[in-house]
Design a protein around this nucleic acid. Sequence first.
DNA 1: CTAATTCAGGAACGATTGTTCCGTATTTTT
DNA 2: AAAAATACGGAACAATCGTTCCTGAATTAG
Lengths: 193, 193
Amino acid sequence: MARTKEFNEDQALDKAIEIFWHKGYNGTSAQDLVTHLGLSRSSLYDTFGDKQKLFAQSLQRYQKNAQNQIIDLLEQSDNIKETLKEIFKQAVIESLEDRITKGCFMVNSSVELAMHDEEIAKIVKNNSQIMEDVFTKAVQKGQDAGHISKVNSATVLARFIFNTYSGIRVLARTGEKDKQVYDDIIKAMFSIL
Amino acid sequence: MARTKEFNEDQALDKAIEIFWHKGYNGTSAQDLVTHLGLSRSSLYDTFGDKQKLFAQSLQRYQKNAQNQIIDLLEQSDNIKETLKEIFKQAVIESLEDRITKGCFMVNSSVELAMHDEEIAKIVKNNSQIMEDVFTKAVQKGQDAGHISKVNSATVLARFIFNTYSGIRVLARTGEKDKQVYDDIIKAMFSIL
DNA sequence: CTAATTCAGGAACGATTGTTCCGTATTTTT
DNA sequence: AAAAATACGGAACAATCGTTCCTGAATTAG
């Protein structure tokens, strides 16, 4: 009946994530997308609708990936505190390596768009909710195992951890390359876990 | 020799701060500026140069104000821990009251522009440096007075406090209106001071 | 092979972007 | 009062914005 797509839709989405992440929504033009995704304007619009829809799909895909990564690590962990240390260590490595300083796509998007675009706001809130739940369960597990202090409740610590994570991602976006700054923040954070 | 300006330059800058803060740099058009500042295109360009320069001046002015406010509070304080609590309490109030959820102009700008505009990057880094210094001195004072724990160094705590502050401002920008979330984060933070 | 389908490429759309320029009005100094 | 200087408003600029549409090539099913 018809010819098959010459490009992989998910691969195109990954390219879209890259450029939106780097330049933001308003900073990325249709031409940028055409050039970076390597497909024609018509294919782009036929496949993804419009710029806003493409952005939303990109952010969704990013969220699922990032989320699953953390969920897997925490669920398979038998020492939550150590796993959290690994997660933050990884965030620092990414921040320092990041030659084009992208920060976190979710944080960037919420700052730029959450208040102007309801669909993006929903994605962001959904992400926050899921992350809070995941961290809460993980902290609870850590507290039960005696690896994490019970001075503060699991919910309090979960929200606190997620907030520190956001802050670090903003710091990365500003281009901070001094590892000591990240390490200090993380050291302080872990002193209450 | 010449007629005098019919508008107050600082008042115009305050208007510019408002709209840039709300809509971001790329999200604010020249027409938005003309409408919101209430002066003509020519006056705007004659006075402030161009959009980028106007933005930079707005951010500079915002920084000076926000900075002085915190410096004054901390320098006059005789109980740093309590003063810090006041500062964070105020940030929460602003976040909850904020009907158009603007977050922090400095945080928003660093996320959107720091990596694409060297001048903005400089302003952001300068701000971070000053804030770190101010917080470090304040924490030191608090530690000397016995109000703040000496388990972590003043620099570590200063960076940590500033990072938590950034995170909270991002949270505000996402439109979070649940006071409990802010209070939990702050509670956790203060448990190590 | 033919017909049906959908691809890719690029021209072209009107709208909006940031910016410039010009004529007029207004004010201040000489 | 005259002249110099500058603010003002708005028209107009080229460039770019996101998007649509048209053309022809490519692929698959019957």
